[in-house]
Design a binder for these strands. Structure first.
Length: 954
RNA sequence: GCCCGGAUGGUGGAAUUGGUAGACACGCCGGACUUAAAAUCCUGUGGGCUGUAAUGCCCGUGCGGGUUCAAGUCCCGCUCCGGGUACCA
């Protein structure tokens, strides 16, 4: 009987679902193990073959762990809120909930097709009110807490009232955006509104004025990557930086912990490094420069306080409110026009245009506290308001940007570091001897930093300070399809959180999803929803995508709980994610926010672990191949003329136009010689009727006209296409749906082939060149169980030593390789074992049964089918993983390579238990080595037992 | 620019701590079956050199050096490719 994956897989898919095979319990005597895939956004395009790469790996690992006796939590759900559905709704009027449901249904059927072992009873969707009730609740918790820097923990905002009433805010060391100090008396004298405004500056979820990319013409706020050269990507309308009152999360409070705790994680170094660079800790000094003729001073942050004697001017961010105050009458026009220009600059431009410096002089002068010299104060876009204090002392001699700025505007440059002892050192390297720096002269840079910091603190003009690049996360979106904020505002504008019993706060029904006027969310149009009977109004912005995805892994532990985001019993049983598989694109977004939320919940005693994801594996991307045909620029007899890329190369016609071809029309897709045959040309013409009269030319002749009339064609006609590697996307006509591959070869082949492609973390273009090898393997496996008459037969005899050796060798290698996530080599080991079984004519029940269990995580369908035929009533996926017995692997003798001066010249079969001396003697006395020993002296013999023997001669 | 990866046959890749480079596949060559083809099966397959064609010799893991009895693996210097990131004071 033939191996028919289609029949087998359809049957078992049904049966597994009916028997709830993958449903698991929160109570078990078994040890727990939590394997998580990254939350997919269910896009309208469906899954392509790249998506399941990580899912297959994690599924194999989950199944393996189950067979090994673990209670494995392996869930799946959907990050269901998001912009694409909203955009689609604006274009088509289809409610985002409707299109999202449809997309999810498609995802689900594609996932089921691949045979994943998810416990679907635990599915979550972020857009489900039962889910976002708790997203909203966590937001309220963040709102009601502040962060104490001394204890490095979140504390209730409620206690601040007592603290402020007793001692003002001077002594409180908390993460805050409150700039001004106040006394207890001042606090008590404040109105409720004033007090609330101050408390807001301490909350972990707080409101402040932040800038958005506002596009007046589109009437919407744009993301950074939707803005190019100061205009919108869509339509090219002007975009300006518009200040708006928005919610933010104070992730910066947790910067130190987010950085330090990376140490305890089993993540790749590259990933940790990315996070730590993003957090961007730096040590430096914060100090004050007096302003000549003004009451105020300028606070700056520097990592190089040692260079202060070279500080010849200052630069402040153009956004600082006090810039107007210090600007002189003569400079007013210049400063204002510069500020106006900066407004039109996107954040991305301000950061990416490195070469061109710009700025304006305020007319004000600051006093260098060490030299006493007056130095000019400039504004420039290269100083960002949100980093440090938004002001710097510029040291043109020792900083690239300052140097360019000084050169452009003719400002003084005083050399202060002599780097002559360090050839090749750049300006930024902290090396060299101080010069022109009075008491620092002659010191090494690092010593000078220590010395000057001491002096700054002694003189009371500043302090040592740690600074972070990390910025607070803006948490408001002017969109419809997201979680509504559980916040109402009273008549004075004071924000009030909603109570748990009033949650979830659901979205109002709308039929128009366009933004409301004045940069407002579409929710603003739902006036009945916004305006409450008591005169309060609702927040109309919604939460961003990372809201729901920052805690979803906790919900899987107890997905239907209506009394808590998850029960404490469930949280204490599952604790944290043991293995998280996902792409590097989430390195600094999702993974950082999740860690932040988790740490907050940990501070509240709501989760038992400090970190959510113990081990992280990064999967590479499967790219697509974009196939193009070459079309000559000039028409032939008025018809478009396509030529084979071989001809293009031969005749050097590389300037020919490339016309993308749908990959379905191309043969040997992904290979270097992918080509299009006459059938493919017919499909192409159907798809692109404008080319129905075109000429198609290859080395063997040409075809032309709508009927594809052959001219001068001898031999097989085929146009080689030009292939390039790129993203798999709808717009490139190169999306490969896993359903197609599964339909042709079956899910087991698809799963194993994706693994066989190479190391999981490597990116590579999809091609099916090798898929037949994997498919043949499964057929050979199938054939082991059938005799020549097509009857299922296994022998019940005692297995031979050789059979046991093949089996246990496979067990050892596969298990080792699964543990180090080397799934591609696992597939090789399976192939090797089946080849060996076949060669030895093995159909021994004892051996093959264990082999089937070993293979079950990789090929769940075919193994289940054979398992049943072997007479088992219970699923192979509930079997026990085979146990390795090293005794079967022991060899009596080993084939030793004998090398002379490192070059292998002969082989000797020697006893496995021979000691070094015996091995050496045998190697020197063997017949096979004699010819290499003639006329030379043996200087040394290196013997590595079990490995090799190297004879050094000379 | 900086940081992190990577470069191995015609192709995907293997070699876990320095110890037989090329496992396992694809492709290709040759053969069997067939009227023929497809499918299947068997065999060979890094390159080169040959005289007795083998259990032979030489070369070979991006390039140039080095350490070592021994280097794909370690060190130094380059080239190319991929990813991340950026006026961050």
């Amino acid at each position: 009987m033939d191996y028919r994956p289609g029949e087998i897989e359809a049957r078992w898919k049904k049966q597994w679902e009916a028997s709830h095979l993958y449903k698991i319990d929160n109570q078990s005597d078994k040890p727990k193990f939590y394997v998580l895939d990254m939350f997919p956004y269910p896009s309208g395009a469906g899954l392509h073959v790249g998506h399941p790469l990580g899912y297959i790996a994690s599924d194999i690992y989950s199944r393996y762990k189950r067979l090994k006796g673990f209670n494995v939590l392996h869930p799946m759900g959907y990050d269901a809120f998001g912009l694409p559905a909203e955009q689609y709704a604006i274009e088509t009027g289809v409610h985002p909930a409707v299109s999202t449901d449809k997309n999810i249904a498609r995802y689900r059927s594609q996932l089921d097709n691949i045979g994943f072992s998810y416990d679907w009873s635990r599915e979550v969707r972020t857009s489900d009110p039962k889910y976002f009730k708790w997203t909203q609740w966590i937001f309220v918790q963040l709102f009601e807490h502040y962060f104490c820097n001394d204890t490095q923990k979140a504390r209730p905002v409620a206690e601040l009232n007592d603290i402020f009433a007793a001692e003002g805010n001077a002594k409180l060391n908390a993460a805050t955006s409150q700039e001004d100090a106040f006394t207890a008396e001042e606090w008590k004298a404040m109105s409720t509104k004033e007090q609330e405004e101050i408390l807001m500056n301490y909350r972990l979820a707080y409101r402040k004025v932040t800038y958005v990319n506002w596009c007046e013409a589109l009437g919407t706020v744009l993301a950074n990557d939707e803005v190019r050269d100061g205009v919108s990507e869509r339509g090219g309308y002007p975009v300006e930086r518009k200040p708006m009152l928005q919610w933010s999360l104070r992730i910066t409070a947790y910067a130190e912990r987010l950085l330090n705790d990376l140490d305890e994680l089993d993540w790749s170094d590259a990933m940790k490094k990315m996070q730590s660079n993003w957090i961007g800790r730096s040590e430096g000094a914060q100090l004050f420069f007096d302003l000549d003729g003004h009451d105020r001073n300028i606070e700056i942050y520097t990592t190089r306080p040692d260079t202060i004697f070279g500080a010849t001017f200052m630069v402040v961010a153009p956004e600082h409110s006090w810039v107007a105050e210090i600007t002189t009458a003569e400079q007013k026009a210049a400063v204002e026009s510069y500020q106006e220009w900066v407004k039109s600059r996107s954040e991305r431009e301000r950061m990416s245009e490195v070469k061109e410096v710009s700025g304006a002089f305020t007319g004000a002068y600051a006093v260098n506290p060490f030299t006493g010299k007056k130095i000019p104060v400039w504004i420039s876009e290269y100083v960002l308001k949100d980093y440090g204090t938004g002001a710097i002392m510029a040291v043109p001699a020792d900083d690239e940007r300052d140097h360019r700025f000084a050169e452009k505007f003719g400002l003084e440059i005083i050399p202060i570091v002599d780097k002559s002892d360090y050839p090749g050192a750049t300006m930024e390297d902290k090396v060299g001897k101080m010069i022109n720096s009075e008491f620092l002269d002659g010191m090494e840079v690092l010593d000078a930093i220590k010395e000057i910091t001491k002096r700054i603190e002694a003189q009371g003009i500043g302090t040592k300070k740690v600074n972070y690049k990390l910025r607070d996360a803006i948490y408001s979106r002017q969109r419809y399809w997201g979680e509504p904020f559980p916040i109402t505002y009273d008549k004075e504008g004071i924000a009030h959180p909603m109570k748990l019993e009033d949650l979830p706060l659901e979205l109002p029904e709308l039929d128009d999803f366009k933004p409301a006027s004045g940069a407002k969310s579409p929710l603003a149009r739902a006036t009945d929803w916004v305006n409450l009977p008591n005169g309060f109004t609702r927040e109309t912005d919604t939460m961003p995508g990372f809201a729901g995805s920052s805690w979803y892994f906790l919900r899987y532990m107890d997905p239907h709980n209506d009394n808590a985001f998850a029960s404490q019993e469930a949280l204490h049983y599952w604790k944290d994610v043991d293995l998280y598989v996902g792409g590097t694109e989430h390195a600094v977004g999702h993974l950082l926010y999740s860690r932040f939320w988790h740490k907050f919940l940990y501070d509240k005693g709501l989760v038992p672990t400090n970190e959510p994801f113990k081990k992280l594996i990064n999967q590479g991307m499967i790219q697509g191949v974009i196939e193009n045909m070459y079309m000559l620029k000039e028409k032939t007899d008025g018809a478009s003329h396509f030529v084979c890329s071989r001809i293009v190369k031969e005749k050097h016609m590389e300037d020919a136009v490339q016309i993308p071809v749908h990959v379905d029309f191309v043969r040997d897709y992904g290979s270097q010689n992918s080509w299009i045959d006459v059938k493919g040309l017919k499909k192409f013409i159907e798809w692109r009727p404008e080319y129905k009269n075109a000429i198609f030319e290859c080395g063997k002749g040409m075809y032309r006209g709508s009927e594809l009339i052959a001219e001068k064609v001898n031999g097989d006609f085929g146009l080689v296409t030009h292939s390039e590697v790129g993203k798999m996307s709808k717009s490139k006509y190169n999306v490969i749906n896993p359903d197609e591959v599964v339909a042709e070869y079956g899910a087991d082949t698809f799963r194993m082939y994706e693994m066989f492609l190479g190391p999981i973390e490597q990116s590579k273009p999809w091609d099916t060149q090798g898929i037949s090898g994997v498919h043949n393997f499964l057929r050979k496996l199938w054939a082991l169980f059938y005799d020549e008459n097509g009857n299922f037969t296994v022998s019940d005899e005692q297995p031979t030593k050789e059979e046991l050796k093949i089996l246990h060798n496979a067990i050892k290698r596969v298990e080792d390789d699964i543990e180090r996530f080397s799934f591609n080599t696992c597939v090789s080991h399976f192939m090797k074992a089946v080849n060996d079984f076949k060669a030895g004519g093995c159909n021994n029940r004892q051996v093959l049964e264990q082999f089937i269990v070993l293979l079950a995580p990789f090929a769940p369908f075919v193994t289940e089918e054979i398992w049943e035929k072997l007479g088992y009533k219970e699923s192979v996926h509930k079997a026990v993983y085979p146990v390795l017995n090293e005794d079967y692997l022991k060899e009596d003798s080993i084939k030793y390579p004998i090398a002379f001066n490192g070059k292998t010249r002969a082989f000797l079969q020697l006893p496995a238990d021979a000691d070094k001396a015996t091995l050496e003697k045998a190697a020197l006395e063997s017949e096979d080595t004699q010819k290499w020993l003639e006329g030379v002296t043996v200087r040394k013999v290196i013997v590595v037992p079990g490995r090799m023997i190297n004879i050094v001669v000379g």
